[in-house]
């Protein structure tokens, strides 16, 4: 029996399978199944700053018409926020009571400000760690790259100053110097970085000639991007790393660990196969490890990272060159 234990979020995990923040981790029932199926940790559905904004919008729309200047709606966002925060805090305590795996609270912020205050409430509610889901699609043409990274760093630092539990960050790949950014986040004191956040993407509907949402769930082919960056950064930054997006089976999870991930975060596959699939996935991982003779996750972790691999050039290669062969078969 291989030893699957690892560390992520600054916590001891019994295995590297982390249930990523998603609609599935919004329900106590699902979380119980995940826990029973052996998951290493669960990240609760994020409390969205944007959600408050949308609910407020909806409220105004509903009460709209010619009387939309309603005085009581003028500051209603405060109440919506209070209410959402209250619900979330209650949820954390309920989950903590129901399961004995680490429970990670998640904040999805698009601006700093009082969302930082909210981190201490998550801590007080009993969460074992916090994941910050930092969320800017850098579409503002007037903002420089350094302004964007400055925002990330200042938000992270503000949260770190507020709480004593470990703080991790889930980031997107939209950085002009991604590696540098992760390094800075690590130096700022985050326990872990999860790569990469998957944005809602647009698509074009050819029938109606309009825009629509692209696939909401990830597809297995998407794993190569996090794989590259986990591989490149493992062992070279002062924090733990987790991979997410496109991990749909035990094989891909193992690849991530070999590339140097401390943990993997999965969500989309559970939408297809249900929460109990966690058990199957862990069993397959274990089977592979036994077959390959790995006694523990620690042992295999980073075996094929940029630092450790025999042919690390693969991580840096961005253009196909005939010279390297492989594809000329």
């Amino acid at each position: 029996m291989a030893n699957l234990s690892t560390r992520f979020f600054g916590l001891e995990l019994k295995n590297p399978l982390v249930i990523a923040s998603s609609g599935l981790t919004n329900s106590l029932e699902n979380i119980k199944i995940f826990a029973e199926s052996g998951a290493g940790a669960v990240v609760l559905k994020s409390i969205f700053e944007e959600e408050v904004y949308f609910e407020y919008e909806e409220m105004m729309r509903k009460q709209g018409g010619s009387h939309h200047f309603h005085e009581h709606l003028d500051y209603f966002d405060y109440q919506i926020k209070d209410e959402n925060v209250k619900d979330y805090i209650r949820f954390i305590s309920d989950v903590k009571e129901a399961v004995d795996i680490p429970v990670v609270g998640s904040i999805n912020c698009i601006s700093s400000g009082d969302w930082v205050q909210f981190a201490s409430k998550i801590e007080a509610a009993g969460a074992d760690a916090i994941e910050l889901n930092l969320f800017i699609l850098p579409s503002d043409l007037n903002k420089s790259a350094s302004e964007a990274s400055e925002f990330y760093l200042s938000t992270v630092k503000a949260v770190l100053a507020k709480v004593n539990i470990p703080v991790s960050v889930k980031i997107s790949s939209y950085f002009s110097n991604l590696g540098g950014m992760v390094k800075e986040l690590a130096e700022a004191g985050v326990a872990g970085v999860t790569m990469f956040n998957r944005f809602y993407s647009p698509d074009v509907d050819l029938n109606s000639l309009s825009l629509k949402a692209a696939n909401v769930l990830s597809s297995p082919s998407e794993y190569v991007m996090p794989l590259r960056w986990i591989g490149l950064l493992a062992g070279r930054v002062e924090c733990q790393l987790a991979a997410t997006t496109g991990i749909h089976d035990a094989d891909t999870a193992i690849k991530m660990l070999l590339a140097g991930a401390d943990a993997v975060q999965l969500a989309s596959i559970f939408y297809h196969k249900g929460p109990a699939y966690a058990k199957e996935l862990l069993a397959e991982m274990e089977k592979w490890m036994d077959e390959k003779g790995f006694a523990s996750v620690e042992e295999m972790k980073g075996k094929l990272s940029f630092t450790n691999a025999k042919n690390p050039g693969w991580y840096e290669r961005v253009q196909f060159m005939n010279y390297f062969g492989e594809y000329n078969g």
Binding site: E57, M60, G64, F69, H72, L73, D74, Y75
Partner: peptide, 30 residues
């Protein structure tokens, strides 16, 4: 602009202090 057609307030990282000895909070009722 938000759903009411009014532009929504966005906080800046700038603060001012005011001397006050009475504050009345009129941000709505439940």
């Amino acid at each position: 602009p938000d759903a009411s057609g009014r532009r929504r307030p966005v906080a800046l990282d700038e603060y001012v202090e005011l001397d006050v000895d009475l504050v009345v909070v009129a941000v709505g009722v439940s």
